[in-house]
Design a protein around this nucleic acid. Sequence first.
DNA 1: TTGAAATAGGACTGATATGGTACTATTTAT
DNA 2: ATAAATAGTACCATATCAGTCCTATTTCAA
Lengths: 148, 148
Amino acid sequence: MLRISKLTDYAILLMVELTREGEMLSAHALADRIHVEVPTAGKVLKQLSSAGLVESFRGANGGYRVNRPAANISVAEVIAAIEGPIAMTECSAEPGLCNVEDSCNLRGNWQRISMAVARALEDVSLAEMSAPMTASRARLNIITLNAP
Amino acid sequence: MLRISKLTDYAILLMVELTREGEMLSAHALADRIHVEVPTAGKVLKQLSSAGLVESFRGANGGYRVNRPAANISVAEVIAAIEGPIAMTECSAEPGLCNVEDSCNLRGNWQRISMAVARALEDVSLAEMSAPMTASRARLNIITLNAP
DNA sequence: TTGAAATAGGACTGATATGGTACTATTTAT
DNA sequence: ATAAATAGTACCATATCAGTCCTATTTCAA
């Protein structure tokens, strides 16, 4: 299915809210905005915080804040913060995990594909995610492994 | 982590073996070649067969065969045969599954990203997967959602 | 005609990942 | 001091994944 997890989806929504707001928001306020339970939002926010994507402030009137503008934050960063490195197969994440490694000469090409997908996600900013679709943005340049 | 499953990985390996061979191979022979247990290979081959990617022949001297050349079979087809439609989030697969659907205006953009990833995978053939990497194929054109 | 070889189709199980919740500690403004 | 908030950890229910097994059904060949 090649999917991202729900928590990662929440992370995108949270980051979009935070960049829209610009100022500090508590986990409670954020949970309300994206319609999830507070502990769930908190869990995701903690991960975003330890990944350095958001600043956290403890104590009364504390909360979370984003400093960078949405245009400077890529979807890839947010995904990586929750799910770890973007990799299509185990073996492309790190060598030695695959039981057919010796006989398999496909690794390099899987890595290429992973890279291509990763770069596709790096090229999409949070600003683009939250903006409505427009005809101009509908044009896509396509990744290819083919030599031109 | 954005990963494909092990079974899908096996499927790629099986398809590469079958396209290399060109002729019919039994599940047993294929399992030997890719170093997995026979029932496991069988399971994957059944799915490939019902997806129409391989022809199956029952009875003694039966087995599996691929008719199309490797260059005409995309990685995306094989992934879809095992994992279903390539979609990054539930909501981009089909509407109505997401609990924040009303308030979430990101769907269209997720769909774009899914499409971009899908097309990236469609542009990679089995032939390219099995070929060794070359410097010329190292050049990648990158997907982008940005207006030029 | 019979038997062996092979795929088809389920059913089942253990392991792992995911999503969600709860509890306690720590920090900070009032 | 107290209340509000995050940090950290642990836990559980569920779903998915990977692998195995069993019973048809088909087909070739002796």
